[in-house]
Amino acid sequence: MKSNTVKMAALLLASTALVAGCGKKKVDVLPPAAEGTDYGTQPTDTTPTTGAVVPGSQEDFLQTVGQFGDRIFFDTDRFNVDTEDQATLQRQAQWLARYPNTRITVEGHADERGTRDYNLALGERRANSAKNYLISVGVDASRIQTVSYGKERPQALGSDEQSWAQNRRAVTVTVQ
């Protein structure tokens, strides 16, 4: 009986040592990003030698329209463009007038409340509202695409009014 206990203890000790040696290994090099994407890469909107912002790039767009000038916000269950949003979209239209070959995508977003289908539809209406305003001030419709992410890509995580307010938005992104 004592010999079985010693064997069991030895087996337990060996298995513990074996499991301890199976810890996570540090990954030095990540696999390459999928072809056609820029996931995990650094922004390339600057020239490599001077570090200057490339005219017509997303970085140039953000510098010109302001830090949060690429987005407009909406009230709960709404998709109307208010006066403050109009000013933001007007700045975007002025920038787009300077770069007539640059195309944009307007992304529509919603907060976490509501069903997936409802939020996708609401995000689409928000993106289209921003698109329609840009068209009304002279931006060619063929330069603007829309996409709805619904509640799938929140800006702020949290289940409170402050987080929800940040997630009810339409964001303009330049397309290269």
Results as ranks from 00 to 15, higher is better:
residue 76 T to N: 10
residue 97 A to R: 14
residue 141 A to R: 11
residue 3 S to G: 02
residue 42 Q to V: 12
residue 131 K to N: 03
residue 60 D to C: 01
residue 75 D to V: 00
residue 52 A to P: 01
residue 110 A to E: 12
residue 135 I to Y: 02
residue 130 A to I: 09
residue 42 Q to F: 13
residue 80 N to E: 14
residue 26 K to R: 12
residue 97 A to D: 14
residue 27 V to N: 08
residue 171 V to G: 00
residue 161 E to P: 03
residue 158 G to Y: 13
residue 126 R to A: 07
residue 94 Q to P: 01
residue 172 T to R: 06
residue 48 P to I: 07
residue 129 S to D: 09
residue 174 T to A: 05
residue 73 F to Y: 15
residue 118 Y to G: 01
residue 59 E to N: 06
residue 90 Q to I: 01
residue 149 Y to K: 14
residue 128 N to W: 10
residue 97 A to L: 10
residue 104 I to P: 03
residue 160 D to A: 04
residue 132 N to G: 13
residue 148 S to T: 12
residue 53 V to M: 05
residue 68 F to A: 05
residue 38 D to C: 05
residue 124 E to V: 01
residue 58 Q to A: 02
residue 132 N to Y: 04
residue 100 P to S: 09
residue 127 A to S: 10
residue 117 D to K: 13
residue 114 G to F: 12
residue 121 A to W: 09
residue 90 Q to V: 01
residue 42 Q to Y: 09
residue 17 A to M: 15
residue 69 G to Y: 03
residue 170 A to F: 04
residue 34 A to D: 15
residue 161 E to L: 10
residue 157 L to E: 08
residue 160 D to E: 10
residue 131 K to Q: 11
residue 21 G to I: 07
residue 22 C to Q: 15
residue 53 V to I: 14
residue 10 A to C: 10
residue 66 G to M: 01
residue 50 T to V: 02
residue 15 S to C: 07
residue 38 D to H: 12
residue 114 G to Q: 11
residue 6 V to E: 11
residue 89 L to W: 05
residue 29 V to D: 09
residue 168 R to F: 04
residue 9 A to M: 13
residue 62 L to C: 07
residue 8 M to N: 13
residue 31 P to Q: 07
residue 123 G to E: 13
residue 95 W to Q: 02
residue 168 R to L: 09
residue 116 R to A: 15
residue 171 V to C: 04
residue 157 L to I: 09
residue 135 I to F: 04
residue 79 F to Q: 05
residue 148 S to R: 02
residue 148 S to V: 03
residue 133 Y to Q: 06
residue 93 A to K: 00
residue 162 Q to V: 15
residue 136 S to I: 09
residue 104 I to S: 04
residue 140 D to V: 08
residue 137 V to Y: 06
residue 89 L to R: 03
residue 33 A to H: 11
residue 149 Y to P: 04
residue 161 E to T: 11
residue 133 Y to V: 05
residue 87 A to D: 07
residue 52 A to C: 09
residue 24 K to C: 10
residue 8 M to P: 00
residue 137 V to R: 07
residue 22 C to Y: 09
residue 146 T to C: 10
residue 98 R to H: 08
residue 53 V to G: 02
residue 64 T to F: 02
residue 155 Q to R: 14
residue 144 I to D: 00
residue 97 A to I: 08
residue 40 G to I: 04
residue 1 M to C: 05
residue 173 V to L: 09
residue 67 Q to W: 04
residue 44 T to I: 09
residue 28 D to Y: 12
residue 47 T to K: 15
residue 42 Q to D: 08
residue 174 T to V: 12
residue 175 V to P: 00
residue 115 T to W: 11
residue 121 A to T: 11
residue 153 R to P: 00
residue 158 G to T: 05
residue 60 D to I: 01
residue 95 W to C: 00
residue 21 G to R: 14
